[in-house]
Simulated assay, not measured.
Amino acid sequence: MQMSEGVEWALHSCLNLAWAEEGTAVKATQLAAFYELPTAYLNKQLQALVRAGILTSATGPRGGFRLARDPRDIALLDVVTAIEGAQEAFRCQEILKKGPGGRATVDYRKACIVSQAMRRAEIAWRRELAAQTLADLKVQVESKQPRTPEMTRQRIANL
């Protein structure tokens, strides 16, 4: 499975917003310029985060994006789902129905060993993402790079 680059962009943008000055909105152009990303494409990701209730947005001269919730209340899975959607990564097509001994009356999504294994793996992956929050990432970054919050605020202010 491969996630789109929008997931990476969204997670980094959310972290940068977590370090923004309280009450300050950050424009999509500033967030895009931070990592030299295309503004129009990043803006689509940011709008998806707004629709998911992760960010808020406002228009006008003081407009931009802010976190809608405390970073402790934003799971990584929330961001991934906002960008990639909630559909399962593996979708059993029940090909066993057409194979030798296949039966039309069997639900192979439940009976197939391959389908079951893939479902278990996906559940584990989703649990791991649900267990980690934006605040967890923030703490990890700050413990390794303590100047990151201040450097982020300064860079955003100068963009």
Rank of each mutant, 00 (worst) to 15 (best):
A48C: 07
R72F: 02
A86K: 10
F90G: 08
L96T: 11
L129M: 12
G85A: 11
T133K: 10
V50M: 03
G101I: 01
R91G: 08
G101K: 03
Q45A: 02
E84L: 06
G101H: 04
R103W: 01
K98P: 01
Q30V: 01
P38A: 05
A89P: 01
R62L: 15
R120T: 07
R69W: 07
L76A: 09
A121L: 10
T81W: 14
G102H: 02
T29E: 13
I123R: 14
G101E: 01
D107F: 08
E36R: 15
L67H: 00
Q87R: 14
E94R: 09
G64M: 00
E122F: 04
T29H: 13
G64I: 01
L76P: 05
F65C: 06
R127H: 09
V50S: 03
E94Q: 14
V50P: 00
L77I: 08
K27F: 12
A52L: 03
R72W: 05
I123V: 14
S57C: 10
T133D: 10
L46M: 05
E94K: 10
R66Q: 11
I54Y: 01
E88H: 13
Y35M: 03
A117Q: 14
G99K: 15
R120D: 09
Y41M: 14
I123N: 11
T81H: 10
G64P: 04
L37W: 06
Y35G: 02
L46K: 03
Q93K: 12
Y108L: 04
Q93T: 12
D70N: 10
A89D: 07
C92D: 06
A28N: 07
Y108F: 11
K44Y: 09
L46Y: 03
A131N: 13
L42T: 01
A68T: 00
Q116M: 09
P100T: 06
Y41S: 14
I54T: 03
S57Q: 14
Q93L: 14
Q87D: 12
G85W: 06
Q47L: 10
R72C: 03
A32T: 01
M118V: 08
K44N: 11
Y35E: 10
Y35D: 08
T29A: 14
N43W: 02
Q132W: 15
P38R: 08
A117K: 13
F90Y: 15
Q87E: 11
A104G: 03
D70I: 01
K44V: 08
V80L: 13
A33T: 02
A28L: 04
F65V: 05
A40C: 04
D70T: 03
L77G: 03
R91V: 13
V106Q: 00
F90E: 08
A68H: 02
G53F: 05
T29L: 12
